[in-house]
Computed example of a mutant assay.
Amino acid sequence: MLAKNDFIDLIPHAGDMCLLDSVVAWDETSIHAASVSHVLDTHPLRGPRGLHAVHLAEYGAQAMAVHGALRARGQGATAPRPGMLVSLRGVKMSVQRIDTLEGPIDVYADCLIADENGAQYQFRILHDGEEIASGRAAVIHPPSPIAS
């Protein structure tokens, strides 16, 4: 298990915007993270009517970012490579809001394909053992600027 302070420096999501609290397990192709940030009144994505389930896609994307950074670190990278979320597909949600869900949510992401240009993942998010969201996401790694 990895606590937030073990991976927060690997991703661009700082402070409260780092929505994941821990990495329960990970390997070369998948990650299982957990969070209770969805219930916080100070959640950075929370609106006047609460926290809509659409934001679960951000939890999936952050699990992807952490997984990619952990893989890169394991392969000897000294700094994480910037990525941009470019696509969400087949997203399904079974709840309207998530701020009313008590207890942790479990975030799973499985790498479908990855190379130096980007990656595609499938994610699913469970609460109390029930799937509340799932989908696929793609991220690209913009080319590094050429030094002059």
Score class of each variant (00 low, 15 high):
3 A>Q: 13
4 K>L: 14
8 I>Q: 15
12 P>H: 04
12 P>A: 00
14 A>I: 10
16 D>C: 03
17 M>H: 10
18 C>M: 02
19 L>V: 05
22 S>E: 11
25 A>C: 13
27 D>C: 06
28 E>L: 11
29 T>P: 07
31 I>H: 00
31 I>F: 14
34 A>Y: 06
37 S>V: 04
38 H>R: 08
42 T>V: 03
45 L>Y: 03
45 L>W: 11
48 P>Q: 12
50 G>I: 04
54 V>E: 07
54 V>H: 04
55 H>Y: 12
57 A>P: 09
59 Y>H: 01
60 G>R: 01
63 A>T: 09
65 A>H: 02
67 H>M: 12
69 A>F: 07
69 A>D: 07
70 L>T: 02
73 R>K: 12
74 G>S: 14
78 T>Y: 07
79 A>L: 05
82 P>N: 04
83 G>Y: 02
83 G>P: 09
84 M>I: 15
86 V>M: 07
91 V>E: 00
93 M>R: 05
95 V>H: 00
97 R>I: 09
97 R>W: 11
98 I>A: 09
99 D>S: 05
100 T>I: 14
101 L>C: 02
102 E>R: 08
104 P>K: 10
107 V>S: 07
109 A>I: 08
112 L>W: 06
113 I>E: 15
120 Q>M: 14
123 F>D: 11
128 D>N: 13
130 E>K: 15
137 A>I: 10
138 A>Y: 04
141 H>V: 15
142 P>T: 06
144 S>W: 11
147 A>S: 14
148 S>Q: 12
